[in-house]
Design a protein around this nucleic acid. Structure first.
Lengths: 151, 151
DNA sequence: TTATGTGCAAAAGGTTTGCACATGA
DNA sequence: TCATGTGCAAACCTTTTGCACATAA
């Protein structure tokens, strides 16, 4: 089991490797996602950060989330209402994978199982399309929320 | 084979059934989607309508697309860049189905094949989630564009 | 020291709303 | 006639940009 401390070390290393400076705000942002394991809008993150950084601006949050996504720390997922959400994602961007989110607590997990090949063939036959990409969006209730442990 | 004329009759009937008035603009909107079979943003539709209706406003388009989606004539699909697209969809909303879109010509088709059951079980086992919904977004190149007939 | 990060203000771009007038049934 | 549709202007909300100042390395 990797501790939260180790996780932080890991992510700060990734920042350094990508020549991003290690500022208190950036650490706090990573903290937020690592600790919660949930996905959130830039606005959500901003509200959280304002508790400790009175003067932080929303553009700062946007800019950092964007950078974190670029270097592979975060995933950008499309959510309801035409808004983007970010969440910690462990599977490398280049590797094919999908995400599952908890409708109650907004937990985000990634998984790489995806038996699309058979279905792909079937759809191609039926529609005449040549399929190039596919995304699977899965929503459900996570283990904790099923237990009623968290809402 | 159903003619475009028959299709128009069909859709105007649906309008009447849902107590929506049959205005020239609404007919033109349905026309646009029926003839092209493609998905488009409200803005795209607006640009098209302006050719025949000099004074038409963008809010009118938004309001009508929204209504058409509600009564099941159109489907709202999320596209790139945080924008919504609309397209004609033949499969009833309540019936489980997915959409496939052509990256070249923006054609939109629907299909109801979807062997999610096995995958669902596998994901549930691996993640501990209880899955409630899933959406599959498929992109490719349609028959016509493969032939190079249309771009 | 210096490239990078940040706050602030303002703009951008898609979407929605309120209201007075117009129009289909 | 009258409920519904529409044009216009303005608001809304998320996201982006420009710029001067601040800060990590």
């Amino acid at each position: 089991m990797i501790s939260i401390y180790d996780k932080k070390v890991k992510y700060t290393r990734i920042l350094k490797r990508n020549k991003l400076k290690l500022t208190p705000k950036r650490i706090a942002i990573i903290d937020y996602f690592v600790k919660s394991g949930k996905y959130a809008t830039p606005f959500d993150v901003w509200i959280y950060l304002k508790k400790n950084f009175k003067k932080i601006g929303l553009p700062t949050v946007y800019r950092n989330l964007e950078k974190f996504e670029k270097i592979g720390i975060l995933t950008k997922v499309e959510g309801e209402e035409n808004r983007f959400y970010y969440g910690i994602c462990k599977i490398k961007k280049k590797k094919h994978h999908h995400h599952i989110t908890c409708s109650f607590c907004h937990k985000l997990l990634d998984f790489d199982i995806c038996n699309f090949e058979d279905l792909k063939e079937e759809i191609e036959k039926k529609t005449g399309f040549s399929i190039k990409e596919h995304y699977l969006i899965v929503k459900g209730i996570c283990k904790d929320c099923q237990k009623g442990g968290e809402i």
